[in-house]
Nucleic acid binder design. Sequence first.
RNA 1: UGCCUCAUGGUGUAAUGGUAGCACAUCAGUUUUUGGUACUGCUUGUCUUGGUUCGAAUCCAGGUGGGGUAACCA
Length: 552
Amino acid sequence: MSEEKSFNFIEEIIDQDLKAGKHEHIVTRFPPEPNGYLHLGHASAICLNFGLTQTFPGYTNLRFDDTNPETEETEYVESIKQDIQWLGFQWKNEFYASDYFEQLYQFAHRLIEKELAYVDDSTSEEIRALKGTPTAAGKNSLYRNRTVEENKDLFTRMRNGEFKDGEKVLRAKIDMAHTNMLMRDPVLYRIKHAHHHRTGDAWCIYPMYDFAHGQSDSIEQITHSICTMEFIPHRELYDWCIENLGIYPSHQYEFARRNINYTVTSKRKLLKLVQDGLVDGWDDPRMPTISGLRRRGYTPASIRDFCERVGIAKRDNIVDVSLLEHSIREDLNKHALRRMAVLDPIKLIITNYEEGKTEWLQAENNPEDADAGHRELGFSNELWIERDDFMETPPPKYFRLGPGLNVRLKHAYIVTCTGFKKDADGKVTEVHCEYHPNSKSGNDQSGIKAKGTMHWLSCNHATSAEIRLYDRLFKVENPANEDGDFLSYVNEHSLQILPKAFIEPSLTEASLDDRFQFLRLGYFCLDKNATKEHLIFNRTVNLKDSWAKENK
RNA sequence: UGCCUCAUGGUGUAAUGGUAGCACAUCAGUUUUUGGUACUGCUUGUCUUGGUUCGAAUCCAGGUGGGGUAACCA
């Protein structure tokens, strides 16, 4: 049974490069800008870049693209590192574009000396105006023909802090009529008297992306620099810089960023959700961030599996969240301990069971894993069951409780419903039933057939907890594609808090790494804000529910 | 409007000139002390028009459609 796993187009390129002897090993890098938290889209890039050097000989660097001090912070650096490691990857080197500021500055001088760069005094508005349009060529700047000496002097003085923000920029001297707008004398350096999270106040000029990224790749001798498709036009400039600087020829390859329906993966939009308080921070369990997924209960393996299933290609895409949910269910089904919880309780009284008696029942921890062992469950005449599990007048294919119907109480007995009580509003307050003593789980001699099996909790052997249920963050499949403000498509019912649900008492001992399946309800994990006194469980994902589907 | 880029079931992705496959989703069924899991089966696809070829999803040409691109962001 050999499973043929085909290469994606990037693996294909690398495989050929290696076979052609172009490299003996490869070097990739993951280059986040520390201006936000990592999300599912980054997970794809991480799995790709780090996965490549697991498939092929080589290694992967982590390099922070920290060339814009105004938006970048150490908090983001730390979260990014944590998320990558949590996903299960380890970088060879931890680098920063800011490590290369001095070298980059020298590179700029080299370009000036080759008459390939000049200092421009134009304002940003003037530069934009002279840039032309896609159909009309741009015009040369008045300052385009400064001498090498003048440029070197001015650029040095820019670094020395003699000018204010925006007063001057360094530009590449390429071609103002180029069909690629990026090649129309792109800005290489700008003046920002801003405090940088790593270099402090050492610099007041900062390189632009195009004069930092490719050069950093080259310095690190990155063989395959992988980025998303919107950088395709940058490749020409990437190559131009490397060629004219005469440095190590890294190459850029582009793939299509991954999109997922009913959410957004744009740091700008995610930041907006955080800033407007629509979510409880970057790690809100509804966020598609790595930290949000972690808090929600997703496992690293499930996210890696998801990325693997989605794959890598070049066409626009919107991946269905059900694939993500499939990945986490598959993982958790194998590993999560089974427990019982009652979210919306209603009392079940067993009228023929001795009052005050407690019976201890054996319950398996995980039917998928014999090694997971068993636990003891207290059983008595008063139980909590799910309100959903009783209907006064059930429809035909209802396998739960209703007048005269039988049901198996999981790990316990078969009961027959004998009656119920309602309050003044007509709301059911109590369900009555009789149990069949010879129908005990594991030793059923009753011969009674029960179509359904229900979860329950003994009133005297249950403790309470807050439970949080989550739904998709947005009401529409592709919020980015809708008219108007994307915030108006936020699903206002995406979080449902149940302040007092019942759970098995042993759950008091749960730790953040534990994963549980609450029988018939879904997979749950402890929230980071939970305490022993105030337990909080997050629902990671529900179980597939063919009954709910049939009722739609 | 220029340039760049992409196009395979509902979704994502394979097939590298030779039987269009896999996964998710959907639907139907079997098993089941979780309406879970597991298992079986069905439905659904090569954007279009030409060309090359014994043979085209694949190569060529023209259309069409989507996306990117005109920040002192990355």
